[in-house]
Design a binder for these strands. Structure first.
Lengths: 329, 329
DNA sequence: TTGTAAGCGTTATCAT
DNA sequence: ATGATAACGCTTACAA
């Protein structure tokens, strides 16, 4: 290609990779030629030879859910910044697709995989163990796992919600969880329950409704939990969407928020600030999680998984008080 | 690799690519070997030689906006179905990033680019013209362009909103648009205005508020349009988010929806059905748009851009009537 | 039907 | 400091 400008292909490669073993003289010559032919190195061929491409895979269960579209956007940002390109896999919560896609990634020799697993049932790790591709688990981890990961302190999130409600005087509360096959949902619930337990209040099992993070399951939860005779004064939902569904059902039943029932959500999606009344919620630091995940995977690539000092990054949730919670003392 | 099982690499390649010039006998032999070593072809090396990889790029302005996260999800679905992998670029509405990313795609020799441009100002086409990579413009096209595209009939969407409101008896209406530098916003507005004009009603320029598709600009629009003395009875917002912002501001001012003012949105995002009252809106067939875009780009890859019969696919919007519009006759 | 060898666009090694 | 040349993992003429 650009060697039609005096030198050998090797030298061109050196110029492009800023090898310092090249004269200023020839460097300029090559750079001119490059500009003239408008030459662009082929990124994939590069990866082929040097055994290290510029591709990093991101695996998420559902792009259209707010939390994950944040992951997609923010991870992409950080990767681009670091000079990588992102290849995205949407598993739709299906372990088969998950496995298939990860297989694809391996076959592309990606430099790393950032992985938000479908559920605790994910089998995909078996495949990954046989390679030495750097991997970081994002958001959905298992407690006992040794794999590097970046997660929220979900137990603390539960305690935070509980402490806010308890502080406002609520003694009779309920909890709407995500799918309990996802371990972070169990952790959140434990945090919530434990806090109340420490205060001498045992939340009955019937007051924990298992939803699926979506709007409709929030509505269902309200239907199930708020019966005539129920004395619940507050609820924590493990996603804002469920919280909003809960509110909608309540408003239909002519309950007033927060006067009759206080509600806390989780995630702090845009919607939370838009609705009326605006939702009190627990914010997850999505952007920071993605930044850390990218940092970690780059580090892992450089040092090897074994030599990683801090393989486990745990970030803190933050309480955002708006208008759906109210003191009842 | 797997040629340690009797044959030559060429034969292995033939087996894997289902070349029919191979004996059932050796085929079985090779397949066994492949299974034994758990051999996986390198997808990128493949693309290098055969000049046709399995990668297709998707360029969107903002992953976190609902419409675009639909594009991401649905396009990925269709691509996976067709045996491709998607590489995603989030341009954040920045022509520079757009250009840079498209450059990257070209340098990876992707088999195609599906492209939802930043705005009419996008310079990226200049780069693309110099290659013969198949390209399909999704959603945001320019009227006079010859590039293959898949778009909504935005003019018709405007007419649809207008005809619904006119049919309900609304004679004094306003319109909240997206950024007018995006041509589809202008088309939508024209459709809306033209319909009313044909009925003998000229909508004054001051009654068209230019927003940016987001919630806040809907609030601003309401603040601007609904002054004391204004006799507007209905509004069309070019995005559901703006419609919801509009509603929120109205509710704050103690206007009743739809009794005092009818509202029509656009997109039919999940939120529309969640809020109270549920939003009447114009639905875009996002899934279908993505399917068509993938079909088109595959066809373009096969036939060449010149031999494409139908380069321009225009899909129809659909009115979804809910609770924010009401007859005033 | 199968093997041999060339080639895709890079980088890495080894002379020079 | 630079040039040949091999190599990366695959596909594809062409020859056998």
């Amino acid at each position: 290609v650009a060697k039609l400008a005096g030198v050998s292909v090797a030298t061109v490669s050196r110029v492009i990779n800023n090898s310092m073993t090249v004269t200023q003289d020839t460097r300029v010559k090559v750079e001119n030629a490059v500009r003239k032919v408008n030459y662009k190195p082929h990124l994939l061929a590069r990866g082929l030879r040097s055994r290290s491409g510029n591709l990093i895979g991101l695996v998420v269960p559902e792009v259209i859910m707010h939390a994950f579209s944040c992951f997609v956007s923010y991870t992409d940002d950080s990767l681009i910044e670091a000079g990588y390109n992102m290849i995205l896999g949407n598993t739709h919560g299906d372990p088969d697709r998950e496995e298939k896609f990860i297989d694809n990634l391996i076959r592309m020799n990606v430099s790393g995989i950032i992985f938000s697993r479908v559920s605790d049932k994910s089998r995909a790790f078996r495949i990954l163990e046989s390679t030495n591709i750097p991997i970081v688990v994002l958001d959905r981890s298992l407690q006992h796992e040794d794999v590097p990961h970046v997660v929220l302190d979900n137990y603390e999130a539960g305690r935070l919600a509980a402490s806010h409600l308890y502080g406002l005087g609520h003694r009779s509360t309920a909890c709407v969880t995500g799918p309990l096959e996802i371990s972070l949902c169990r952790e959140r619930m434990s945090g919530f329950l434990d806090y109340y337990r420490e205060k001498g209040i045992e939340i009955a099992e019937e007051l924990c409704f298992e939803g699926n993070f979506k709007f409709e399951s929030g509505e269902k939860a309200a239907h199930y939990l708020i019966k005539p005779g129920s004395d619940i004064t507050a609820v924590w939902a493990q996603s804002d969407l469920m919280a909003v569904g809960f509110m909608k059902r309540l408003q239909k039943a002519n309950k007033r928020i927060p006067d009759d029932i206080s509600i806390v959500g989780m995630d702090d999606i845009d919607l939370s600030a838009m609705i009326d009344p605006a939702l009190t919620t627990i914010r997850q630091p999505f952007r920071q999680m993605c930044e850390k995940a990218v940092e970690l995977i780059l580090l892992e690539k450089e040092l090897g998984r074994e030599n990683l000092d801090h393989k486990h990054i745990v970030l803190k949730p933050e309480l955002v008080v708006r208008d759906t919670t109210k003191s009842i003392v």
